[in-house]
Design a protein around this nucleic acid. Structure first.
Length: 572
RNA sequence: CGGGAAGUGGCGCAGCUUGGUAGCGCACCUGCUUUGGGAGCAGGGGGCCGCGGGUUCAAAUCCCGCCUUCCCGACCA
């Protein structure tokens, strides 16, 4: 392809609404263009990049025996009502009212795939079955971010597995899991599988594939000691040394008017000369469990609450009858269930709200002044917390979620009567499902973060995803016939050799040509110029290792092909 | 949804404080000269100054309302 044929007009300055390096690069290099917040067009260069990503995914899914299909984006609300996810996912659903009924723009496709597969899965003989699709999905995200990182319309690669029992489901899961590792390796991404929370998709065992990146929206905890890794939503900390309750301390209550909340309470107590710190306060949070009963959760004041599964925070009406801002654990236990993070065992005494407005109590002892019904992980893990497996300090890494695999089990089949098959013994049984998603449109951004310059003015794409593996520039080609002819011949023969190749054919200065090609990001450059032609050579630049070699004219194609192969197999 | 910043030719910005009818760089068009790392000279085109209302003889500029975009946060009683 020629640069003149590409829809390509590079930007010399970065648009002001780009913050992330990948976003700057993608805009400056004419890969994408925003239509509205979180909605992007892929221009020819960006689409070539995207197609390469898709091709890699398709090849690896095919390899594990999954068959590609395509499901509708436009889905009748009825199938969403049937699984109850019309409510569960309400905050991200885009609805469409048509003359022919109410529809949902699919944010995910579990319902649709079950409908599509239903007549084809009748018997155990039809199982296992692995399928996948690449589809545009729609989610009304509260906030789109960082260009392609989080968008409202995006493409996702979705694998689905259908199995007769748990063991077979696990075997299917392993197949996709293996395909995932192969895909991310080919994309040049160091994606780490971490234990995760299943969220609104449901199911039991699941892994997120995380790439450490400064534009990540997630954090995961990693243990250097034993390799334990978990998303911060799911991470647990190991036990800390419990501390003996101090028998000498007596509770004392202070008047602290207008000091709701931990921080103002500490300030108010300190103003009274009391020696307290934020970490020595108990944060008492009112939760509501599945049965609608109040539950009190206790954790240190400097910690964040991880709301336990099936529970939610109480709203203002449910808090009527409680001293909002001054809740404490004293005397609560018989009235309602009191849960506490194990960290509540690590101090001899605590300060807390006194259960009446404008008062706080210090010197509260666990088991003496307040009691706990159950200890449970309630605090979000922080940097330096001990690993739950080996006790070594955990570190927290900012990261991007590029994929998520789930063992759904019977989550969907249990509620959908059509999700059944006939077993060997003739019984009708629900089938076991797994689902496996990769954020396809997000990948170019993540790869660009990793392989692009900080200010977004150059990138070196990995060979397998590069829009063009080779870029040719003929220096002074408009004036020099020999340069022009040699470049054109190289372009034709490299293309014939099977590599994607771009030739600069616009009448621009060398500086402009080079800057633009750096934005397009081919890992290999061929520079043809009168100076080197006089010596019978062409400059071949390996941009990954930043090496330039002079290659005899008749060996250029062979050299470039070999270099391309080497660079593709190399792990950067 | 809460907080912050910003909307002026395609892109980056100035002008706004102190109202007088819009300017710079890049990009674009024409011509000539250039071409081994974002060329030079000369000429030229393009803007309901985000939208609506108000104040005023007069509004990009002052006042009110709205919209859009970006960043941070969104459960911490």
């Amino acid at each position: 392809m020629r640069t003149s044929e590409l829809v390509f007009k590079s930007l010399r300055e970065t648009p002001q609404d780009a913050e992330a390096a990948s976003h700057k690069l993608l805009l400056r290099g004419n890969y994408i263009r925003r239509l509205t917040s979180g909605v992007y067009s892929f221009l020819p260069l960006g689409y070539r990049l995207l197609r390469n990503v898709e091709r890699i995914i398709e090849e690896e899914f095919d390899r594990v025996g999954a068959a590609e299909l395509l499901l509708p984006a436009l889905q009748p609300v009825e199938i969403w009502r049937a699984t109850g996810r019309i409510e569960k996912m309400a905050d991200v659903l885009f609805g469409v009212e048509g003359k022919s009924g109410s529809f949902v723009l699919g944010p995910t496709h579990e319902e649709a795939v079950i409908e599509a597969m239903n007549p084809d899965i009748e018997s155990y003989r039809d199982l296992p079955k692995l399928v996948y699709q690449l589809q545009t999905k729609f989610r009304d995200e509260p906030r789109a971010r960082f260009g392609l990182m989080r968008t409202r319309e995006f493409i996702m690669a979705d694998g689905y597995s259908f199995d007769a029992d748990r063991d077979e489901m696990r075997a299917s899961y392993q197949k996709f899991y293996g395909a995932y590792l192969a895909i991310f390796a080919r994309l040049g991404l160091l994606a780490e599988p971490v234990e995760a929370d299943a969220g609104s998709i449901g199911g039991d065992v699941n892994h997120e594939f995380m790439v450490a990146s400064i534009i990540g929206e997630d954090h995961f905890a990693r243990c250097e000691g034993c390799g334990y890794q978990a998303n911060i939503e799911a991470a647990r900390a190991g036990d800390r040394q419990a501390v003996e309750v101090d028998g000498e301390i007596e509770p004392k209550t202070y008047s602290t008017p207008n000091a709701p909340g931990i921080e103002s309470a500490v300030a108010a107590l300190q103003a009274l000369g009391v020696d307290v710190e934020i970490g020595g306060m108990i944060k008492s949070m009112l939760l509501i469990d599945e049965a609608g009963r109040p539950v009190l959760a206790l954790l240190p004041g400097d910690r964040s609450l991880k709301v336990p599964h099936g529970m939610r925070l109480a709203d203002d009406t449910e808090m009527a009858g409680f001293a909002k801002g001054y809740i404490g654990p004293q005397g609560q236990s018989p009235r309602m269930q009191v849960l506490a993070d194990p960290l509540i065992r690590t101090r001899p005494s605590w300060a807390s709200g006194a259960n009446e407005p404008g008062s706080h109590t210090v010197g509260l002892r666990l088991g003496v002044d307040f009691s706990v019904d159950r200890f449970e992980d309630l605090a979000v893990v922080e940097d330096g917390d001990p690993c739950p497996r080996c006790g070594v300090a955990l570190s927290l890494l900012r990261s991007v979620e590029v994929g998520h695999t789930f063992q759904l089990g019977l989550t969907y089949s249990a509620v959908l009567p059509q999700a059944r098959f006939r077993s060997v013994s003739g019984e009708e049984l629900p089938y076991w499902m797994g689902c496996y998603g990769i954020g396809v449109t997000r990948i170019p951004a993540v790869v660009a973060e990793q392989y692009g310059s900080l200010d977004g003015d150059a990138v070196v794409w990995p060979v397998e995803v590069a829009p063009f593996v080779v870029s040719i520039v003929g220096v002074g080609a408009t004036k020099d016939n020999q340069v022009a002819e040699t470049s054109a011949r190289l372009h034709a023969s490299i293309s014939e050799a099977g590599l994607s190749v771009l030739i600069e054919d616009r009448n621009v200065s060398t500086g402009v040509a080079m800057r633009d090609l750096e934005l397009i990001g081919s890992p290999i450059f061929c520079i043809v110029g009168a100076r080197s032609l006089a010596k019978g050579v062409v400059e071949v630049r390996d941009r990954i290792h930043d090496r330039t070699i002079e290659v005899a004219l008749d060996e250029v194609v062979e050299t470039v092909v070999r270099l391309g192969r080497e660079l593709a197999s190399e792990r950067r």
